[in-house]
Design a protein around this nucleic acid. Structure first.
Lengths: 136, 136
DNA sequence: ATAATTGCAAACACTTTGCACCTGT
DNA sequence: ACAGGTGCAAAGTGTTTGCAATTAT
């Protein structure tokens, strides 16, 4: 099976590249439509699956079981996502602690942490002030 | 609104308590049915929502977007879940590194990590040997 | 030419909701 | 008695699949 280069695939990939943030399939479809490029739902899902397998995009799921979101990664991503379960904001953590985490989990648990698939849930600075972790 | 104590709620909660692991709604329904206690799908979902909000159970989602899984937490849980994206096995990490993580994210990012909601994705020992993190 | 891709509509799996009936207090 | 809970069937999500038409090589 060969991978053809098609108009749709280029559209989806460059849309992901141009909007370097997490987007749901629907957002991508709507965004492309707004730019005058109608790409079918089916095709967008198939592209995202393709890119995800090829390492060009990462797929994330979030805590409430909403739709999956995708983000351009170009094959190399180097930060974690911190997602607030209260206000749903997502923060990127770019600091070196991630490498310490990877080292720890690899050395003590034989586990290779995926930087792009892991999302740390909790409360952000603002929401953390008002709530404890009581009902977490 | 008052929360009534019903037979169904007790059944679901004690089933969660007795099987202290992650279970999907379907597993719970089937398990109860096998024990001779038919509780409707609707009710099980409503119970899980209720317990989750009350801090008696935690809801987890997994990397492939499959169904949500629930686990008894009794209001206090103290470990992370490491999930292998290759073989789908889930490992619990009970070690103290988690507290170091919490400290780090709190001190450097103002972020209060939820132990019960966070799942770390990656490759387990066995799967990590054969694959790199290439397509992650 | 022909293998792969597209897009529609229909199927899917999981979860939620409307509503009449039942149960706990 | 009556607020609240249950369960069925039906509706809703987000995502995937069968298939005929289309496109890339």
């Amino acid at each position: 099976m060969e991978v053809y280069k098609t108009k749709q695939r280029e559209l989806v990939l460059s849309y992901l590249k141009d909007n370097n943030r997490c987007m749901s399939a629907d957002e991508i479809i709507a965004g492309l439509r707004d730019n005058g490029h109608a790409v079918s739902k089916t095709t967008v899902y198939r592209c995202l699956e393709l890119f995800s397998n090829a390492g060009q995009a990462s797929k994330f799921l979030n805590s409430q079981g909403e739709s999956a979101v995708y983000r351009y990664s170009g094959g190399h991503d180097s930060h974690f996502h911190l997602k607030c379960t209260e206000c749903n904001k997502t923060v990127c953590a770019d600091c070196g602690f991630i490498n310490r985490m990877q080292e720890h989990f690899y050395n003590h648990h034989g586990f290779t942490v995926s930087k792009t698939h892991t999302v740390i849930y909790g409360l952000c600075r603002d929401c953390g002030r008002s709530k404890g972790e009581t009902s977490e």
